[in-house]
């Protein structure tokens, strides 16, 4: 009957509409993203003209956005080959950073953006405590077990990890060139 069809149309469109919102918000959709290798940034987050997907995502997660005047946060949930970052694999983060007064790199569980407990109480590195190569580049090893060098402890049981590279006071956010941002590579190593 037509009334049944109307109900079916309304129900299906509600499921499709709300379901697609859920996927967009959980899946980090944003029209104003900057991509550099494995890394993505949303420099308009928090701005009054930011796109509604970015705003919806931040109000869902409860994160504090960094405004362009303060810096930019680059997020990676996959390695440079496009594979999801998982707790039971080791990752080598290698390369250089774009121009910024300061930077920090932090590892989170992707599910709830919580930190990963470890006996050394190390949750990330920053531009002052990283050990660099003579040429200014650096290597960071993300692994559940201790490693020599710049070891960033992860959790073997974590299904998905998130790396956040925060550049504080960077020309990128305030109209600098986007095309030639050089971000470190994330290479997958040994998996258990």
């Amino acid at each position: 009957m037509p009334s049944l069809q109307i109900i079916a149309v309304i129900a299906i469109s509600a499921v499709l509409g709300i379901g697609s919102v859920w996927l967009a918000v959980v899946g980090d959709v944003g029209f104003e993203a900057i991509r550099a290798g494995a890394w993505t940034a949303w420099p308009t987050a928090g701005a009054d003209d930011s796109d509604p997907y970015i705003r919806a995502r931040f109000s869902r997660t409860g994160e504090l956005p960094i405004s362009a005047a303060e810096g930019t946060a680059f997020v990676a949930t996959a390695d440079s080959a496009g594979e999801t970052l998982v707790g039971h694999c080791d990752y080598l983060i290698t390369g250089r950073t774009p121009a910024a007064q300061w930077w920090t790199l932090t590892l989170y569980r992707d599910a709830d953006l919580s930190l990963i407990a470890n006996p050394t109480e190390r949750y990330g590195f920053n531009s002052t405590n990283i050990v660099r190569e003579p040429d200014g580049s650096f290597d960071i090893v993300v692994a559940p077990r201790a490693r020599p060098g710049n070891w960033l402890p992860s959790d073997e049981k974590a299904k998905a990890l998130r790396l956040v590279f925060r550049l504080y006071d960077t020309p990128i956010a305030t109209g600098g060139s986007v095309a030639d941002i050089e971000m470190p590579r994330i290479e997958r190593g040994h998996c258990r």
Binding site: A14, S20, A56, S59
Partner: peptide, 21 residues
Amino acid sequence: LAAIVHLVTILVIPSFATRDA
């Protein structure tokens, strides 16, 4: 209809968020 629901939902999420910053 699904597109309208999608757009309206995206726009009203911030007003109804109870666990935002």
